[in-house]
């Protein structure tokens, strides 16, 4: 029932009727094949019926089940058949005008690629890069810290000495 509710059919009686129908069929299937749970039978049956119905309505029997479902559900949504004619969902044969309405919903997800090559051009970073490269190659972080501490000490001592003299 929860699964059928996700289709947002506007006629609740229709949803109940479909659910009962599917459950009845699931009971039959479970009797024949008790190794599978009734819910599994019911869902497999519901999915198969939906898939077959959508494929026949859209005339796309040759496509994979996932593609048929994706195209079909979107067709259902965009054509508003689930709202305007809920009784026709899973009905066979589907009235011609509804079949036409479903087939007319063409989903354009994106234009075809028109590939361009976009690559960075060489940029000469100039003299700063030369200096930086030399620095990176020469300097080790540990040595740098030691050097900085050393000169900080020297300057401090010099400043202290000067301040004593002046």
């Amino acid at each position: 029932m929860n699964f059928l509710n996700t289709f947002e059919l506007s006629d609740h009686a229709q949803v109940s009727e479909l659910a009962l129908n599917l459950l009845h069929q699931a009971r039959e299937l479970h009797r024949k094949d008790p190794s599978r749970e009734p819910v599994t039978h019911a869902m497999a049956n519901a999915q198969k019926r939906l898939g077959d119905w959508l494929a026949a309505s859209l005339g796309e029997e040759h496509r994979s089940p996932s593609r048929i479902m994706a195209t079909g559900y979107i067709a259902l949504l965009l054509s508003q058949v689930h709202r305007t004619a809920p009784a026709s969902v899973l009905a066979s044969p589907l009235p011609e005008e509804l079949r036409q309405a479903l087939r007319e919903t063409l989903l354009v997800t994106g234009p075809d690629f028109n590939i361009s090559s976009m690559t960075p051009r060489h940029l000469d970073y100039g003299p700063m890069l030369q200096i930086a490269r030399q620095t990176w190659h020469r300097w080790d972080a540990k040595e740098l810290v030691i050097a900085l501490l050393f000169w900080a000490g020297v300057y401090s001592a010099f400043y202290w000495w000067l301040s004593q003299r002046l």
């Binding site: 996700t6 289709f7 947002e8 996932s66 593609r67 479902m69 994706a70 195209t71 079909g72 559900y73 979107i74 259902l76 949504l77 989903l107 997800t109």
Partner: peptide, 16 residues
Amino acid sequence: LLSPYVQAVHLSLVRQ
């Protein structure tokens, strides 16, 4: 994963 409509939109946009 659950709603057939949302799934359909997603599958249409994820290139299979």
